[in-house]
Design a protein around this nucleic acid. Structure first.
Lengths: 326, 326
DNA sequence: CTGAAAGCGCTTACAG
DNA sequence: CTGAAAGCGCTTACAG
């Protein structure tokens, strides 16, 4: 079923059918009706491939996340999708994992003109490589800082967020505040660590301990905590950089026969819905994940529609949600 | 950058370039080299839209989920994506929510030839409507029974799974086993309820109570449980149809000053990674979610490549994972 | 083994 | 207001 057949059915030219389809200029009412009827009768649907090839617009963007199971990522994606839908765009989701190979294949969609831009949530350390693959297509980096001048990005002030957490714990009387961090190929991990260290100093706390989780998973959080608890001096509070990790942290604490927050307080990060599912409910630094997604879309649309405008960096407001765990 | 320019650069015809691109028939080695070099030099990438328009193949499928934040859905999607990638397919993810309007718009991609098939996880009650929209494009329904003869589907034996849970609880000595179910527009909800009722009878247990959650969320689970606990006779065990709901169930129980499993045992469903994050860790009926996703892809590929073959119905094995909550 | 040509299904100046 | 025609960038019989 093509525009040709509709034209024949309606007794007009393909140009006229196309005009009706794009409710373009003024088609004579009588012709419009004929075309519309032919369309309904034959249940015609325009071929998007042809249209997009011709117009060089796909109204699709690629979204690459490292792990869609991560509730924070899922929430960001929803925000992107919401805003995209509002603006007539569609998203192509790629769960790239950390494998650059997989990213490479997905980015073929970019160069193949299937999508008009890409939103990534990649580790900072991967960005140079990404940069080469993406070249000069519109690109927005989300929830992780990018210092490439061509790339817009949206994120939070990681340093001050970490400071907020440490400040809160210190003021609550905790003296041995440990950190469980993600690996430092992520810039946010570096920045939060920096905030942590700075704020400890600020508070005159010399005790410090950092343990690294090799993934943002329950088990990685558990392991990292077990390593921490095996040390001579145990912490009385743990600040961790993701709610998912925090679940593992609490499990490890409880497995060690200790309790939260009496023996060790725990603070998470992200403010995902799972943070209130835990027992005790988790105190966490909440990122405006949904809104970050929306903003990421706005930025990419701007890059697409006004490529001459310079890239933007948007910093959003995060806040501490106090619950029972700390 | 088009195939034309490459042809000019390499001093051959576009046909030859195309042949090299598809490492087709035998292109003379010398020409192949010239073409390859021209491609590298100019960093040429074929336009996918043109190729797909011409070949009428997009190697993409649409995946529609109602909520990507649901860990079970996310896991299934990962399975689909894994298998798709292995077979050179790409997925377009649509977080349709429950809104049929949103589905409708996404299905435009189907009729618009952007995708070759669709995998849905829709409620049974929505299927007739979907059926009209999808018409005769390859379609696989995942994790929810479909009785449309044209649609392949993959799922579990919901009745016997529910029976397994009730049987386990009854044998452990629980006598007042309640159920917290999703709304009955989902066929799985109906079937699990059926299994629950049957197995209670089987075990000679006359006490029965069912409360419905209006979404698969923490808060919906909490509310449904609060309604349950407000009744005269309280349950000593609760079987609920999703791990996410179970989180709310446990929170409500704890909020009522009771403890799990001493006062009320809890069993979840899905076997998502969050089930081990709870305290106490959740006993749950684990679905092979990843594998279901993979199978869903295999089915859709079969529908795409061999449309003449009849639709298939695949039932996968689920199993009870015993933890501390029951 | 290779090239000229048709055609996939659209949109859009251009001319009338 | 409308139609004929060119063209988006490919692939693929067809002929040589």
């Amino acid at each position: 079923m093509s525009i040709q057949k509709i034209a024949r059915l309606a007794g007009v030219s393909v140009a006229t059918v196309s005009r009706v389809l794009n409710n373009n200029s003024t088609v004579k009412e009588k012709n419009r009706k004929k075309v519309l009827q032919a369309i309904t009768e034959s249940n015609y649907q325009p071929n998007l491939l042809a249209r997009q090839l011709r117009t060089a617009r796909s109204l699709m963007i690629l979204v690459m996340v490292s792990d869609i199971s991560n509730p924070f990522c899922a929430e960001v994606v929803k925000g992107i999708e919401e805003e995209a839908e509002k603006n007539g765009f569609r998203i192509l989701l790629c769960n790239s994992g950390s494998e650059i190979e997989r990213s490479r294949s997905s980015l073929g969609l970019l160069s193949g003109k299937m999508v008009e831009g890409v939103i990534t949530m990649n580790a900072f350390s991967k960005l140079p490589e990404m940069s080469q693959l993406i070249r000069n297509t519109p690109w927005v980096q989300c929830a992780e800082y990018s210092d490439n001048g061509e790339t817009s990005c949206v994120g939070i002030d990681d340093i001050s967020c970490a400071q907020t957490v440490v400040d809160y714990l210190a003021k609550a009387g905790y003296r041995r505040i440990a950190m469980i961090n993600h690996d430092l190929s992520y810039n946010y991990a570096r920045l939060r660590q920096q905030g942590y260290v700075q704020q400890l100093a600020q508070q005159g706390l010399s005790w410090q301990a950092i343990s690294y989780a090799d993934a943002l998973s329950f088990s990685a959080g558990k392991e990292a905590t077990m390593r921490l608890l095996a040390e001579n001096e145990q912490p009385d509070a743990i600040f961790t950089v993701s709610d998912t990790l925090a679940a593992g942290v609490m499990a490890a604490i409880q497995a060690a026969g200790l309790s939260v927050p009496e023996d060790i307080a725990v603070v998470g990060f992200d403010g995902t819905e799972i943070s209130e599912m835990f027992y005790p409910p988790l105190t966490t630094l909440a990122q405006p994940s949904r809104e970050m997604g929306r903003e990421a879309f706005r930025l990419i649309q701007q890059r697409i529609e006004q490529p001459e405008k310079p890239a933007e960096r948007v910093i959003m407001q995060a806040h501490l949600v106090k619950r029972a765990s700390a």
